[in-house]
Design a protein around this nucleic acid. Sequence first.
DNA 1: ATCCATTTGTGCGTATGTATC
DNA 2: CGATACATACGCACAAATGGA
Lengths: 218, 218
Amino acid sequence: MITKGVKRYPLSKQVADKLEEMIELGEYQVNAKIPTEAELMKMFEVSRNTVREAVQSLTSAGVLEVRQGDGTYVRSSNRFRANMNLKYAQVSLEDIREARNAIEVSVANLAAQRSDEKDLALIEKKLKKRKLLQEDSKENTLADIEFHMAVAQASHNTILIDLYESLATYLENHISTRQTETLLDWQKIDQLHEDLFIAIKNHEPIKAIHCTQAILNI
Amino acid sequence: MITKGVKRYPLSKQVADKLEEMIELGEYQVNAKIPTEAELMKMFEVSRNTVREAVQSLTSAGVLEVRQGDGTYVRSSNRFRANMNLKYAQVSLEDIREARNAIEVSVANLAAQRSDEKDLALIEKKLKKRKLLQEDSKENTLADIEFHMAVAQASHNTILIDLYESLATYLENHISTRQTETLLDWQKIDQLHEDLFIAIKNHEPIKAIHCTQAILNI
DNA sequence: ATCCATTTGTGCGTATGTATC
DNA sequence: CGATACATACGCACAAATGGA
């Protein structure tokens, strides 16, 4: 009597998801003013209450900022970024590499010990996605983060997953920068990700750690 | 119609405050069912939407729990405690130890390589403060976090400092729990913190790492 | 096992207050 | 000041979940 297969998907959440997606895709830039509630009503063909609920949820997530009598503005294009007051200027690639090293080595170690079939399926899925998108830097960056996030999930450690999500903000910048600034041996990178997956799958923590360090030191 | 003073005091917030007060005073006990929305409407002479807004705010604060088709129940009589329980419910001590290990080992390593006089002075200051407060668990917990935060600062890695701050939230709970649940060898802990400081001061990364691991594995 | 009353969830329309430009 | 835009509040209707008859 527990579950009922059908998921509910309230209108307000649909609108919120759609809005967030548009913001992430750059339809509405940071600091830009989004359409008024009345316009959003027409755009999504919903009532004002529904629009307001959607806007409120994005506001509490730190994505939007509402100013009464003025309008609603985009505060952050990424809800993870919204939770951190970061100073990209002071962040060096070396900083990011060190932080990745700290988190990812531990995560790989734990993932190799604890991953179950579900975890492995997700990691493999992201691994394949990563391969296919290898040429496109934007999508590849996101796919790469998704892969490592899947590994983090497999660690089954809530806090490390949490910390990795915070780190993802920096990662997005890191990986794409590295792509543009240096010539990469894509085959080797690909192989290392594959090796990492296999090490996790075979529950070989030491090997997983080595693969992770190799990936970070390319 | 309510008076309008200088400050705005929305009806929904009035209802929420009143409800929370009643709960704190024991009018509605923990696990008890509070009146239905319809009854609350009559009780406060407001609309259902207003009632629902109030209930929702208390729900997100962890004070109430709503079950569709059943009713609304008191989850906690104190919203502060509610947040703590909510946040740390799924986090095990092992999770926290693993996360600390990931961050602090890296941080100790870097701090031993990069610490300057200013860093060392701060760490030493926190070290002394920690000693003095050893008996008092509350203040000692905070002092301990301050000490490790000072070490993080000495790593000169903005991201790791940032991640450690996130971790500090969990740490506060971790350390105090450990204090109450196990008998600790205070002299040894004290000595290890002292050793860590000296290792950082003498720029001995390996030794700093070992001290950190020893502290975490007590 | 089914039906049904109760209770919360979602959504709409409207009216009025308040802040900003 | 007026126009615009968000804030608050009410009432209504129907959907979905729960629990008991």
